[in-house]
Structures are given as structure tokens and as C-alpha cells.
Design a protein around this nucleic acid. Structure first.
Lengths: 231, 231
DNA sequence: ACGCTACTGTGTCCGGCAGACACAGTTAAT
DNA sequence: ATTAACTGTGTCTGCCGGACACAGTAGCGT
């Protein structure tokens, strides 16, 4: 599995030339997932886009789980190079780059969940995030935890604002808002604070990304400055 | 769908008594999901635990998607009642309660993803979170965004620290750490900052929840105090 | 008392899925 | 030329969600 993700395959000398490549397979899968959602990705479907049959794919990949892992790391891509900046600005653009990646391939939100082996691209993203904090005075663990918080925030914001191609019941943002508004009128008594909060927030949507990000960065800044002051 | 989640079913007068109830079905599903993971939940499997066949379930629920939604809201449960506290402490315990819920039913992390209709319990959690901030001077939108950030953080921490019963490849935390360590020794040159961060963080794991939560709360406090000062 | 009718549960069938396995064709090393 | 490594194919199994026709049941109006 690690070999798959990291591309350390001992290429064979004998036998016929392979008709496809692991990367080619993964790219086909990515194309399907981008267009029709992760649920539309099946071995049959992928094989249909390649000059091989379904079973041939198992020569390249042990199972679907592993294939999705390869697809995920590939789709994630390398983080874009950014000029050196102070840690706060660096993390801010890093977070936005991450967000862009998730909106480009929404299914990544579903496939990169839970414990899993990490691929080169995912590690590259982490590297870039951590490198913004090397001069901050935070410990290694704190640096990792910091970028984890930011990643979590970005992921969930992306999840909420993205329309998944297939998979989920095709609810638009409006459907949700309307259903919610409906419920809050009939059940307002059960959720008083929520109701007023919703009412006064009408129209000021989609500030969630910046708001949360600024809070987190503020919190980090407080810690970092405190550390610096106490040395 | 809204009727399903909110239990507004017009109970019929004629015809034979139903052999099961929607709640009973959902509870069976929850039992399976808790024990063997969300993937183990199938209509057959649920029917096997009840005195009905698979197809009878469709009398109570339009499809599996909806059933999982009902299961999710039911498993989430109501947030535990907590005495009134200052906003920061209230949010802190609220976050920990949320974390406990997710560790009790790890599959909730998978099933409550993306846009979806909200059930009464999920709204009750939001209500409790928002109610901690009503006196804070934040706008309604900011209150909602605040609890969203915290939820995101809790979710992702739970995701990382939980072992999913079925579903994912059964990787222990150790497997991951070892694989990661292995990679970072052979590829240290590509990820210099990450490598040093990992090295210096050895042994200080599982601080992620508190660390991130404190940063977020710090960030919120900064904003709230700033607001109060400027009035 | 009786049938109508709404309602519940069952069995069968379909298409699609992941994957096991045996086998045929291909190519390089010997 | 033979062998052995390797790639691709076709077939089969056991699951899944769900459509549909049908049989059984029980309350209602008459």
C-alpha cells in the first residue's frame, strides 16, 4: 500500500507491456468522481473509460479502497508555491489554497476521512503548513495541532458550501434554508436562541470561512506572542 | 423526509397493526452501526434483527438514505443539560459533550456529512451551543459561525482518534505512526520542517483537542472583549 | 353481519457492485 | 525453442438497494 501511494513499484522486465498505468487508472477515477461523485466510481465504470476490462485493473491495484487512496492523493496535488511571508499571512493563504483544492474535488472530503496512510501530496501540504510555523516558537506538537485545527475548519466549511455531484440527496442551499426556516417557525419555542440567531443572521451568509479562520489565527497569535514575551 | 425526522406521522386507523416502529428500525440500525460500522448496516441486516423481512422496512422509510438520517439524529441524542456558566466554560463543556457523542457512535462522523436536512436532536445541539453566546455581543451569524468552528474541530479530532469498527482498513494509531516514521526517515529531505516537528512532538500526542479548542476560545474571547470594549 | 378499503408484510426479480479464480495470450530471458 | 513471468479476459458468487405484484388483516360504513 505504501508502495502504491509512493510510486515505488519494481517495474517488471518480462511479459507483455501493460496497457494502462496506475496513474492513468487513478486519473480516470478522478475524472468520474469530479463529474458524477464518488459513488459513481466503480471498477466497471473506470474500466469503461480505459482500453481494459474491469478485472485487469486488479493487476495494478489490490482493491477499490487502495485505488481511492491513490486517487485522493493524486487529486490533492502539490500545494502551490507561495513566497515567504509572516506566519499569519502564510497560513491564511495556505488555508485558502486548501479550500480551493477541496472545492475543485469535493469528493476528497468523503475519501480522506478517518485514519489512513498518507501519500506524498498530503504530506507536502502538511509540510507547507508546518513550515509557516517553524519560527513561531511553538513546539513541534503544537505546530501540528495548529495546522490540524485549520484543516478541520477548512474541510467543514468546504463540506457545507459544496454541492456534491452525485451521492447526497440533491439539496440546494435554498432547500436547506427553507426547510430550516419552516421548522423554526413551527418549533420556535424549542429553539429560542437558535431562532433569534438565525433571524438576525439572514443575509450575512458565507462569512464562515473568514470568520473562523480569523478566530483561529487570533488564538494562535495570542499564544505565540505570549511565548515570545516570556522568553 | 422532514416528517420522518420530526416524527410527524399521521398514524393510520385501519389495517393491521404494524409489527415494528420507525424508532425500532432505527435503533436496530444504530446497534449494528455501533458494533460493526456503518457499512454493515443493510436493509437485510436490519430486517434480520427484527420480526419482519427486508421489504417490510420500506413501509416505514422511503430508502436507506433516509433511514440513515433518522438513525443519525436518534443516535446523536439530546445534549446533556448543563448548569448555566460563563460562555467560555459553557462552550468548553459543550464541546466535550459533543466529542463524547462522536466517540460513542463513530459512524456519525461518516453519516452526518455534507448538506442534509436537520433533525430535532441536531438542532437541539445547535441551540445549546448558540445559547452560550447569546450574551456575548456577537451577531447571530457570528454565533452560528462560532459553534460551527468548534464543531468542525471536535469532529476532526474525533475522526482522527477513533477506530472505526468496520469500513476503513483496520489501521491502529501505531500502524500509522510507524508508517509515517518510516517514510519520514527515507524522505526526510522532502519534508524537513515536518520531520523536525514530528520528532520533537514524539510522546506528546492526543493534546490536539484541548490545544485547538483553547486557541478557538481564545480567538473568540479576543473578539468578544473587543466588542464589549468598543461599546 | 358484511363487504369495502386502507393498510401491512412477503416473495420474486432486476441491475449493479467488489472480488475470486481459472485460463489464454504475450514477451523476455535462458 | 523452451520456460517462466507477466498481462488481460470471461465466468461465477454473494452481496446490495429497490421495483413490483400479491396475499393477508382489520377497522369503517352500511
Amino acid at each position: 500500500m505504501t508502495e502504491l501511494l509512493w510510486g515505488k513499484q519494481p517495474l517488471p522486465s518480462r511479459g507483455p507491456k501493460p496497457a494502462v498505468t496506475l496513474t492513468g487508472i487513478a486519473e480516470a477515477g478522478i475524472r468520474i468522481a469530479d463529474a458524477e461523485g464518488l459513488d459513481a466510481v466503480s471498477m466497471q465504470r473506470i474500466a469503461g473509460e480505459l482500453p481494459v476490462t474491469k478485472m485487469a485493473l486488479y493487476r495494478y491495484v489490490p482493491g477499490k479502497t487502495e485505488l481511492v487512496a491513490v486517487m485522493s492523493d493524486l487529486a490533492m496535488g502539490s500545494p502551490p508555491d507561495r513566497p515567504d511571508q509572516p506566519w499569519r499571512e502564510a497560513l491564511h493563504t495556505w488555508a485558502n489554497d486548501l479550500y480551493d483544492g477541496f472545492t475543485l474535488h469535493p469528493w476528497l472530503l468523503l475519501s480522506t476521512v478517518g485514519r489512513r496512510l498518507l501519500g506524498p501530496n498530503e504530506l507536502a501540504w502538511m509540510e507547507q503548513g508546518v513550515s509557516a510555523l517553524t519560527e513561531s516558537g511553538l513546539t513541534g506538537g503544537e505546530q501540528l495541532d495548529s495546522i490540524l485545527v485549520i484543516t478541520s475548519h477548512i474541510r467543514n466549511i468546504a463540506q457545507q458550501s459544496t454541492t456534491f455531484p452525485g451521492h447526497t440527496t440533491g439539496l440546494t442551499e435554498e432547500d436547506m434554508q427553507q426547510s430550516l426556516a419552516e421548522i423554526l417557525t413551527t418549533e420556535a419555542a424549542r429553539f429560542p436562541h437558535l431562532t433569534t440567531a438565525m433571524r438576525t443572521s439572514a443575509g450575512s451568509e458565507n462569512q464562515g470561512l473568514e470568520f473562523g479562520l480569523q478566530r483561529i489565527l487570533d488564538g494562535l497569535e495570542l499564544l505565540i506572542n505570549g511565548r515570545k514575551a516570556s522568553t
